[in-house]
Design a protein around this nucleic acid. Sequence first.
DNA 1: TTGTAATTTAAGTTGACACTTACGAAAGAA
DNA 2: TTCTTTCGTAAGTGTCAACTTAAATTACAA
Lengths: 102, 102
Amino acid sequence: MLQKIQAISDPTRFAILELVRDRELPAGEIAGHFSMSRPAISQHLRVLKENELIRERREGTRRFYRIRSEGFRDIQKFLESFWAPRLDKLKELTEQAEREKK
Amino acid sequence: MLQKIQAISDPTRFAILELVRDRELPAGEIAGHFSMSRPAISQHLRVLKENELIRERREGTRRFYRIRSEGFRDIQKFLESFWAPRLDKLKELTEQAEREKK
DNA sequence: TTGTAATTTAAGTTGACACTTACGAAAGAA
DNA sequence: TTCTTTCGTAAGTGTCAACTTAAATTACAA
């Protein structure tokens, strides 16, 4: 999961995710948005795919990419579950303060 | 913000965040949980501090660390705001489907 | 077949960063 | 002061990942 988080933390990869968040795009068009080489983008796409953050659909010689919602939601849920104990503790403390008031 | 996300994606740093999520701990005790050298942990603490993910409190020769809730929440909100348009689009599509039913 | 377009894979380079050991700083005790 | 504790900073090293260019793959058209 940390690897997945690291995957989205790269600026280029995050920009790719923004591109394919709302629509499906072929690799070439994705690469067109960046100043770096096509292979570089291809490698970023592979990282995103390996981490289940995008889907690939092949059509003829082209490959279309789009975001994969589960993968993204996984990260959000992971962070929530990390934070939950902290919220529990806060709740616990305020409840204790309530009891002490009475 | 991406830098902040990258900061938490390191396994050691994430483990540190878990340690100081619920309680405040001195640097030495934090380092005691790991097999690497104390300076290594000190450097990780600096990265976390620079990215506003932990707070430092000095007491005599010791330094206590605890998680910084705003910094962590920032990440969650950032991801939510990234995902929001996607949800909007989904809502839009279902509403359109509703209208077409009628 | 031959060619061409879209894309990935291979191989190599470079820079960032997570470590190490050695040294320095700050605070308090003897 | 001097010693000790706690911790950070400095400097150096090795690994890894993000790039490059060149070559291979895949699908399809001429």
